[in-house]
Write a protein that binds this DNA or RNA. Structure first.
Lengths: 343, 343
DNA sequence: TCCTCCAACGTCAACGTTGACGTAACCGGC
DNA sequence: GCCGGTTACGTCAACGTTGACGTTGGAGGA
């Protein structure tokens, strides 16, 4: 019960002394290496058990030739965000298979903070890093990569060469959403997007444009709202859209919280059954609302799994050219995206 | 771009050679210790910069007298669960202040898996552990604690002595919810609970009983449903309740997913405006539903912050008697809990 | 002038472990 | 009985860093 200083952790030397062998032999037994007789193995095991010996991985990885720390870093934007949390969990599940533990951090989408976390991981000599790149420059990531650290980018691709990535079909799926709305007869489809610096936002906007172009709709600048930071901004932006002389009949909200904000305004104005809405990113209870919210659902576990597979392949020494995996998002029809235009 | 084996990480020796000083002096400069002249400091800094030197924390912590790894472990039930994710994030935020990184793991509420993760953390010599104890025995936790590892339990208290904990007012808040419902005139208040092995479930059930007792309502066994594992079980359980000859007029759902399941059934039967509902644990969009869902909201960030404060105090050597912090949950009125009994 | 003291360095060993290599004992074969 | 090979150990040094403890030179005081 005392402070940890009270008891000293037993070392191989202690075990060796008790088992009356050399530390090297203890090492062999602990690591299941050949070169120890069965009787000695038993003696060492017994000694380790009675002392409560547990190997010191930091010492081990310092000395080992492969230098593995059996630890990887996962740098996301915000661990409390359900999207990020699901990603982390998927990576963790894969890591566990290899007995690897995960150091997790939130970059807050701040390149400086990300750089700090990156060096923090580096000083701990992690075997690899899975990272959701913060907006703005990726200098720190590139530098880390050029030092040879295995790295995989998730959700957003690298702006430099030679690094694996796993992303969602942001552009194609956004286009599909617009096509779906246009197919119902909507002609004035608004776009509400997140911070423009985010790659995903840009892609989804591009997809929106492609959707318009494919259906021969003209782009109306007044129907575009970007840089919406959180639900409140989205809520007021939606209000300004609905106040237009010719308001949109359908909304494409390119991010989770933006969708929520837009929904609030529609609901306040009792337009939720008369204005179509498709959101990017699924969220819990989207089906319980009235109408159910039609969304583009990302396969987050697949995203994480893929990223984990890639990083572990690189750690294992895979030298193949950089992979850029793309995981499809699917349109989930729940009602809000199926509201027809008035008239 | 090659494998990491290509380039060797520069060490203090390399920096020392370039700056023409001893490694010890480099150590002094890196750690901002006195005993290095300003000119030498500059030379060493320059050398470190040109070589891209970064200290090796594993070697450092192996050698240092305090043995700090500047890393703590956080073992939760499921990192992808929003509750757990918010907890992790709160701990991370506090940890960052001390330059400490967080090793995160999901125990799946499985004591064996938790034990494995625990030894994984132990071999990495983490400075402390924040853990959401898995149901069943806490032997592994107790053993780890008895070895002297600083430890704080969150959300569920220890079944052994001498360890800090942070929990929510499960019992009192549950009682308040029942009192609130009874105050509106409800006489048949059902209880729907999670796995009975969970301490939180038991507490919430006890609070329910206290609530009944305080208002002179008699306990009706047929209104109790426990061991509901996820929304589906809750959904069917709610159906059986509503099929009773004398169905409940109010539901107290003691967990997140149970609340969701109950809501689905109420909605299916179009009883959501006629049956009162209070749930334990808030969830996103609870206010967007119709009616808004009245919940007992736990202050998850406070829970995490408190746990982090406790663990860092212990790591810093705090020897005061075990603390058992309790964070209040608050009743958030949104409508579903304010539905009066029929008649 | 000499001695003390301190700042600014350096030397050495050790943290717990493992790679490289040494060695003694034993086995089978001729 | 000797030789080559193998098995089961042990010895030693090193991984990168820092604590303990030197050493040096110069400032300052008596």
């Amino acid at each position: 019960m005392d402070a940890r200083s009270a008891r000293r952790e037993p070392t191989m030397r202690d075990v060796a002394a008790l088992a009356k062998v050399s530390t090297k032999t203890v090492s062999r037994v602990i690591n299941d290496l050949p070169g120890a007789g069965s009787e000695v193995v038993e003696r060492v095991r017994a000694a380790a058990r009675t002392l409560g010996y547990r190997p010191n991985l930091t010492a081990s990885s310092l000395r080992r030739s492969d230098r593995r720390s059996a630890t990887i870093g996962v740098l996301l934007e915000d661990l409390s965000n359900p999207f990020d949390a699901a990603l982390l969990r998927a990576v963790e599940d894969r890591a566990r298979q290899d007995g690897v533990l995960v150091l997790a951090g939130s970059s807050e989408d701040d390149p400086d903070l990300q750089r700090e976390l990156l060096t923090s991981l580096a000083t701990r000599r992690v075997d690899g890093i899975v990272v959701m790149a913060a907006g703005g420059h990726q200098d720190a990531l590139q530098q880390e990569r050029e030092r040879g650290t295995p790295m995989v980018l998730v959700d957003r691709p690298p702006t430099f060469d030679g690094t694996d990535s796993v992303t969602t079909t942001n552009r194609d799926s956004s286009r599909d959403a617009v096509l779906h709305l246009a197919g119902l007869g909507h002609r004035r489809i608004a776009f509400l997007g997140d911070r423009k610096t985010l790659w995903t936002s840009q892609e989804r906007y591009t997809g929106y444009l492609e959707g318009l172009a494919h259906t021969g709709l003209t782009l109306r600048e007044e129907l575009i709202r970007t840089d919406l930071h959180g639900p409140d901004a989205a809520q007021t932006a939606t209000a300004t859209l609905l106040d237009l002389a010719e308001p949109p009949t359908a909304l494409f909200t390119a991010q989770n919280l933006v969708t929520v904000g837009a929904m609030r305004t529609l609901r306040d104005r009792e337009l939720h059954h008369r204005t179509a809405l498709i959101g990017f990113d699924d969220f819990p209870l989207a089906d319980m609302l009235d109408p159910g919210v039609t969304v583009l659902r990302q396969d987050v576990p697949a995203l994480g799994r893929r990223a984990a597979e890639l990083i572990f392949a690189r750690i294992a020494g895979d030298q193949s050219p950089p992979a850029h995996a793309v995981v499809p998002a699917t349109l989930v029809h729940r009602g809000s995206g199926e509201v027809p235009p008035p008239g």
